[in-house]
Simulated assay, not measured.
Amino acid sequence: MIDAIDRAILRRLQEDGRMTATALAGEVGLTVAPCHRRLKELESSGVIRGYSADVDPARVGLGFEALVFVTLRDRQNMKAFEAGVAGIGQVIEAQRLFGEPDFLLRVMAEDLPAYQRFYDDVLVGLPGGRKVD
């Protein structure tokens, strides 16, 4: 069961995932050993799924972001569509919606012309897609 101290640990790590256990312990009012034990338990139980870097898309040549709604032809195309989207690096997030549209995609591209090419060459050709907005 997660208590107030665990929540404080999680809150601080969400703000700064590179924080040392010593600094974290000081901020949540624990000594290092109990803080480290709690941190390891949160990791091993799956509450903390991992650590990642927050990358600035513009600094890696991806200055354009688009939210794209996709409506499938029918439900039988769902798995093929999901498999198709999973292999596309420019789709950085895909959320299944309930109702129409069926999916919301978050797409990154270098700029608007690059996105237009991606839209024309890739998005409209995804398996099972009926409508791409």
Score class of each variant (00 low, 15 high):
88 I>H: 02
69 F>T: 03
95 Q>M: 12
30 L>W: 04
58 A>F: 02
95 Q>C: 07
14 Q>L: 13
47 V>D: 07
70 V>E: 03
83 A>P: 03
124 V>Q: 14
63 G>N: 02
121 D>H: 10
53 A>I: 11
87 G>N: 09
74 D>E: 13
65 E>Y: 00
46 G>W: 10
114 A>L: 11
120 D>G: 13
88 I>G: 01
38 R>Y: 07
130 R>L: 12
39 L>I: 09
121 D>V: 09
10 L>C: 09
9 I>E: 02
127 P>V: 08
47 V>K: 11
122 V>C: 12
133 D>F: 07
36 H>F: 07
60 V>K: 03
55 V>A: 02
98 F>M: 12
60 V>G: 03
60 V>Q: 06
42 L>E: 05
21 A>N: 12
102 D>G: 10
24 L>W: 00
120 D>A: 15
110 E>C: 08
24 L>Y: 03
10 L>D: 00
73 R>W: 01
29 G>C: 10
117 R>G: 08
59 R>A: 14
131 K>P: 01
6 D>Q: 01
81 F>L: 09
43 E>S: 07
87 G>M: 02
85 V>A: 12
10 L>G: 06
2 I>S: 01
11 R>P: 00
128 G>H: 06
40 K>P: 03
3 D>N: 15
37 R>C: 06
22 T>I: 12
60 V>L: 09
118 F>E: 02
52 S>F: 11
77 N>Y: 03
102 D>L: 11
99 G>F: 10
4 A>T: 05
108 M>R: 15
45 S>Y: 10
68 V>T: 00
92 I>L: 07
119 Y>M: 06
56 D>T: 12
54 D>G: 08
50 G>E: 11
77 N>M: 07
45 S>F: 06
